[in-house]
């Protein structure tokens, strides 16, 4: 029963209750801040900041403790396996989060917008706004912009002549390459090539930052030059929410990878044995997941 000799049951811990309390402060702050958006002198945002800071700090010390326990040899192969399963199921939950937004996109594209335009089985809906015609990307709204700001241009494929200035294509190239580089890092780690590992991981982190930069550029374009905003009807809603949550996940994944880079470069963590580098591997799984989501976005939001 060798693998079972080392059940690791951690002693009492203060981290969870700190995390729960700071999460509470965070969401109370967030809700009050959002409710007070019209009042610039509201103090709620400081509650939000306090929550963010304490939640971030708790997570930092919590993760640090887990790493220290690992380095002290307290954990076991079994615990490591628990982390592996845990991470996999966490990523599955993220998949389902995106599924909700993709589901909304498919629903409006196949059902609600055509119906509002008078097509299909529920085309009766057209009597709400009789002048509305269904198209996609939707550059108007059924109420013809009465309550919304209608965009001039969409983010979709602009035609072959303009392809080189089309940011989403560059975004795709950047993100796909970063999946390759993080994989190269992993190969080198397993081959005990620590230097190359650091370099490839560094390249990945730079690509992540570059992606976020391009994405910010794209949002700037949208808001400043295309008139495309959150308030542009369902096209803008789905576009910004899908790419926005994806961008947020890129930042999270990038943060994870940077932490791994710092741990590797400054603390010489991670060894070739899979048991000795799951932190990195988990971050790289997350990174591949973010990449797959982008491929879906590229297809269903930008191209099709």
């Amino acid at each position: 029963m060798s693998t079972y000799e080392k059940y690791y049951v951690p002693e009492q811990s203060r981290f969870p209750i700190y995390a729960a309390t700071s999460l509470f402060i965070l969401v109370m702050g967030a809700a009050s801040t959002i409710n007070a958006l019209g009042q610039p002198d509201s103090m709620s945002k400081y509650i939000l900041y306090a929550g963010l800071a304490s939640f971030g700090a708790t997570l930092f010390f919590w993760f640090r403790k887990v790493v220290q326990e690992h380095l002290a040899g307290l954990d076991s192969a079994q615990l490591n396996q628990s982390f592996v399963y845990g991470m996999a199921w966490f990523i599955f939950s993220e998949v389902m989060f995106f599924a909700a937004f993709f589901g909304a996109l498919f629903y409006v594209r196949t059902f609600s917008v055509p119906w509002l335009g008078g097509e299909g089985e529920k085309g009766l809906a057209n009597m709400l706004w009789e002048n509305f015609q269904s198209t996609w990307p939707l550059l108007t709204t059924p109420d013809l912009g009465a309550a919304y700001t209608v965009p001039e241009k969409s983010m979709s494929f602009p035609g072959w002549d303009k392809i080189l200035t089309w940011l989403p294509l560059w975004n795709t190239i950047v993100l796909l390459s970063s999946s390759v580089t993080v994989h190269m890092a992993h190969i080198n780690l397993k081959a005990a090539n620590k230097n190359k590992f650091n370099i490839w991981l560094g390249v990945t982190v730079s690509l992540a930052i570059f992606f976020v930069f391009l994405q910010a550029l794209e949002y700037y374009e949208a808001y400043e030059h295309y008139g495309l905003t959150l308030n542009s009807g369902i096209y803008g809603s789905t576009f910004f929410m899908l790419t926005g949550f994806h961008g947020f996940h890129v930042m999270m994944g990038g943060l994870m990878l940077s932490v791994m880079l710092i741990r590797s470069v400054f603390y010489n963590h991670f060894k070739p044995d899979p048991h000795e580098h799951f932190g990195f591997e988990a971050a790289s799984w997350y990174w591949h997941f973010v990449d797959v989501v982008w491929v879906m976005l590229f297809m269903f939001v930008y191209i099709l």
Binding site: L37, V108, S112, V113, T141, Y148, N231, I234, S237
Partner: peptide, 14 residues
């Protein structure tokens, strides 16, 4: 709070 129209038919949602 942020002007999207997922659940508002006037903006193309439902």
């Amino acid at each position: 709070h942020f002007g999207t129209s997922f659940f508002n038919a006037a903006g193309g949602g439902d």
